[in-house]
């Protein structure tokens, strides 16, 4: 009998323990990595929503109030958390025609549940951005500001809390610029 024959069993047992330990450590590490990735995805989605808001909203609202002096409607108004923008921008001849016929001439923004919803024309509200936890607006025309708060939607595993962040967007509405003379002739 060779002197080192008994080592095979010990080596095997040791190898089993070690490989189990390594596997466990690997899976723990993998789980942490996956959780980290999941948290990162939540944070990135939240930040993307916040970054998208200042790009999306000004395009919709910058021309608010165009041709309002010639009509009976308000250009920009806020009530019950809804921001309504009316702007007579286009007509059959390519110029304001005194009517809000095109869908892009009448826009309403609201915060409902966890969505930022937008309604254009006579359609219904459609979700535009997810995981919006708050939307507030204020201002004295021609300045108008929005504060939008977005959240991760789900608790971040690292902190076990839903994380929120907010951005503030200040708009200068050119149709409300101060004129020395009244707009109506």
């Amino acid at each position: 009998m060779r002197r080192n024959e008994g080592f095979s069993l010990l080596e095997m047992i040791l190898a089993l323990f070690l490989s189990t330990g390594f596997l466990l450590a690997f899976f723990v590490l993998l789980r942490e990595f996956q959780w980290g990735c999941a948290d990162l995805a939540l944070m990135i989605e939240r930040d993307q929503n916040l970054q998208l808001f200042p790009l999306l909203v000004p395009r919709l609202l910058l021309a608010s109030g165009n041709n309002r002096w010639n009509q009976g409607w308000e250009g920009l108004s806020e009530s019950n958390g809804r921001v309504s923008s009316n702007s007579d921008m286009d007509g059959p001849e390519g110029f304001p025609d005194g009517a809000l016929q095109n869908s892009f001439e009448s826009i309403v923004l609201q915060h409902s549940g966890t969505d930022l919803q937008i309604k254009s024309g006579s359609s219904s509200f459609q979700p535009a951005l997810k995981n919006i936890s708050d939307l507030s607006s204020s201002g004295t025309l021609p300045s108008f500001s929005f504060t939008v708060e977005a959240s991760t939607g789900l608790p971040v595993r690292k902190t076990r809390r839903i994380l929120s962040d907010a951005v503030r967007l200040d708009l200068y509405l050119w149709n409300y610029r101060s004129n020395l003379f009244a707009e109506a002739p």
Partner: peptide, 18 residues
């Protein structure tokens, strides 16, 4: 010295070209 009165402002898009 009196600045002109601005009575309209809009961004134009290709479909509004006249």
């Amino acid at each position: 010295y009196f600045p002109p009165t601005q009575i309209g402002w809009r961004i134009l898009f290709p479909e509004m070209e006249q």
